[in-house]
């Protein structure tokens, strides 16, 4: 593999990792603070993408559409929280799985009914639609680079909020012992609501950013959700720092693995076997990585909960 190709894969990996982080951030907080297993988080990602698409059709301006999409995604997240999630915080994980699974079925189908089952595309905003000459023979779309920058900025901002502000302190305290925070006179329910709404918005943001890169289709968030789960398991549930590092690692491993696995297998097997085994191995890599991490550290790399 040439160094140019390697550089492209590296950038693609970072970009995938950044998207994963935006999804995983909300998921890990909701999980860490409330102990709530939210399968419907991937649906928020899809909603963000479709809402931005819809508003883009109306306004014709990507940034306005993004902003409107985010506000609507936040409102929808809060509405879901009030209607369903709020009543399930104290319940068994199984009830949470059942309810959020039902929400996935419903929203995926609703999106299919409203926007049709086919794929849709959203153009990148004009001011970012150019390509950048990175090396002599490598053009890379500016939009993708901007995506990485925005993702890293959001991650830094989120890290500052969680480690430096009062809300962040409460979130961390909630992640290590929610009962105690509640006993100290903090309205933990309101904290839950804020975290949930914010997490939903972040996932929606990821969807909106990803829309010009990938295509929109019903159920587009489902597979990403599982990878986001892998990310927060590796990073340690409830840890923003862990989620970021794990997201980048998973993004790189997955992207590089897909382009390198077949070549690597060529060294061991003959060409036809390598073509067969390579993609299989590549698609399993992140799960193998997760299994390896868990084998040595069952709580993930950066567990948020002190002793447990």
């Amino acid at each position: 593999m040439s160094s140019t190709l390697f550089l492209i894969q590296l950038l693609n990996g970072a970009q995938y990792g950044v998207l994963l982080f935006l999804i995983a951030a909300g998921l890990t907080l909701v999980f860490g603070v409330m102990g709530f297993i939210n399968l419907a988080h991937g649906v928020q990602y899809m909603i963000g993408a479709y809402l931005t698409f819809m508003y883009f059709g109306v306004t014709g301006n990507f940034l306005t559409a993004l902003l409107l999409g985010l506000v609507t995604a936040l409102c929808l997240g809060l509405a879901l929280e009030a209607l369903v999630f709020r009543h399930l915080y104290d319940r068994d994980h199984l009830d949470q799985v059942l309810a959020t699974f039902g929400i996935i079925l419903f929203v995926n189908e609703a999106v299919k009914v409203i926007w049709g089952p086919g794929t849709l595309t959203l153009p990148a905003p004009e001011f970012l639609s150019a390509s950048l000459q990175l090396t002599d023979n490598l053009l890379y779309p500016v939009y993708r680079l901007a995506l990485i920058v925005v993702g890293v900025l959001v991650a830094a901002g989120l890290y500052l909020v969680v480690t430096r502000t009062r809300v962040g302190m409460l979130i961390r305290a909630g992640a290590s012992n929610a009962d105690m925070v509640s006993a100290l006179g903090i309205n933990i329910r309101r904290l839950f609501m804020i975290v949930f709404g914010f997490g939903a918005m972040l996932a929606g943001f990821a969807g909106a950013l990803a829309a010009p890169v990938f295509t929109l289709e019903p159920g587009m968030g489902d597979n990403l959700l599982i990878v986001a789960f892998v990310v927060i398991i590796i990073g340690g549930i409830g840890s923003i720092r862990g989620a970021f590092i794990a997201a980048i690692l998973v993004g790189l491993i997955d992207t590089l693995g897909r382009s390198l696995a077949t070549d690597a297998m060529n060294l061991i097997f003959d060409a036809s076997a390598a073509n067969q085994i390579g993609p299989s191995i590549a698609s399993m890599l992140i799960y193998i990585f997760m299994a390896a991490v868990l084998f040595f550290r069952p709580q993930g790399l950066f567990p948020a909960k002190g002793s447990a």
């Binding site: 059942l98 699974f101 189908e109």
Partner: peptide
């Protein structure tokens, strides 16, 4: 979907 939510 909503049926599952209600059951939960």
């Amino acid at each position: 979907g909503p049926m599952l939510v209600l059951i939960a």
